[in-house]
């Protein structure tokens, strides 16, 4: 999306903004790697522990649900290539973490990568944004129903819009195969371990999907227009620490500079604040001067 820079002072030019952002897009995202692989290992362990009666199915369900809520973000960094950072020799890291982290949610990594790139290029565009079905929900209840149903039908329509893009089409087709493998594994498991599959995979994945859709797709973009600097907002919640929402209050900066690592976003926002205000990013005036471990609670 093109944006009008004619009224922006030279000191807040796009080039200068990019220069500042670049400083925060260098570090290796080891925390994300740890969370991505870690939650997948914990989730796999719950199967072993529950099946062998070391922990109850209920405890397993709680653990699996927490894992499902933690599963998307590490893969999201992989979708943007933020582990390899352009180094072809390290690209396997993106692929590995992308696939492993999404096991819990049963999402196919290639489809997530392909559709997420289209989401960035077309944020809030009803005809082109794969996430628009969630963004257009009127309230969290509608998001819940949408995620319960799954996006299959909506994805078919958006797929038709983007299928002329070869790169997208290739990734999407590969993702469909991965999805079939995942679905087949689930159908085999449910015959052997019915309740375990229901409580350690199916339900946690629904909970994780709802959590992810609400915090990543709905709240940061809901009610906003199309356009860089306009399609995502900064916000604060009453009494909710930002860690409980994966710091998605800061998601807008990811849309401006996707290669900034997730845990480097607070520092980047502090330095970018004047640029964000000059550009009129929704909510930019409310950004605190310092974002440390401040949970961004509005009191």
């Amino acid at each position: 999306m093109r944006f009008d820079s004619s009224n922006i002072p030279a000191e807040f030019s796009f080039e200068k903004e990019k220069e500042v952002a670049r400083k925060f897009a260098q570090r290796f995202q080891w925390e994300m790697m740890l969370i991505g692989i870690g939650q997948a290992l914990v989730w796999l362990s719950t199967w072993f522990l529950v099946i062998n009666n070391y922990i109850s199915l209920f405890v397993g369900f709680i653990l699996a649900s927490i894992c499902a809520c933690l599963a998307y973000l590490p893969s999201h960094e992989a979708q943007h290539g933020n582990y390899s950072r352009g180094n072809k020799k390290k690209r396997w890291l993106d692929t590995l973490i992308g696939h492993v982290s999404l096991m819990t949610l049963m999402y196919p990594f290639p489809i997530m990568q392909a559709t997420h790139m289209k989401h960035h290029a077309n944020t809030n565009n009803p005809e082109k944004d794969f996430d628009y079905g969630i963004v257009s929900c009127k309230n969290p209840w509608e998001v819940f129903l949408y995620t319960l149903q799954g996006p299959d039908e909506a994805y078919k329509e958006y797929y038709d819009v983007h299928k002329h893009d070869k790169n997208f089409e290739n990734k999407f087709s590969r993702g469909v195969l991965v999805s079939w493998v995942q679905k087949s594994i689930q159908l085999v498991l449910v015959v052997i371990f019915p309740l375990e599959t229901l409580f350690l995979w199916f339900l946690p994945r629904k909970i994780g999907t709802f959590y992810t859709a609400l915090n990543f797709s709905w709240y940061p973009h809901h009610g906003l227009e199309v356009g860089r600097y306009k399609d995502s907002k900064f916000y604060m919640f009453k009494y909710t620490p930002r860690y409980l929402t994966h710091s998605m209050q800061l998601h807008f900066v990811h849309h401006l500079h996707p290669n900034i690592g997730h845990y480097d976003e607070p520092k980047a926002i502090e330095e970018l604040k004047p640029f964000l205000i000059a550009r009129g990013v929704p909510g930019a005036e409310d950004i605190p001067d310092r974002i440390t471990y401040n949970p961004l609670i509005k009191i």
């Binding site: 469909v176 679905k183 689930q186 159908l187 449910v190 309740l195 229901l198 199916f202």
Partner: peptide, 27 residues
């Protein structure tokens, strides 16, 4: 792959009902 894809698209919900829900109900 195309015929499999068509089959899953058309009958995926039925297979899910039979195998997934059936196994859960059976429990």
């Amino acid at each position: 792959v195309e015929s499999l894809s068509d089959h899953i698209e058309n009958w995926g919900m039925v297979w899910f009902g039979l195998i997934f829900l059936g196994s859960i109900f059976n429990e």
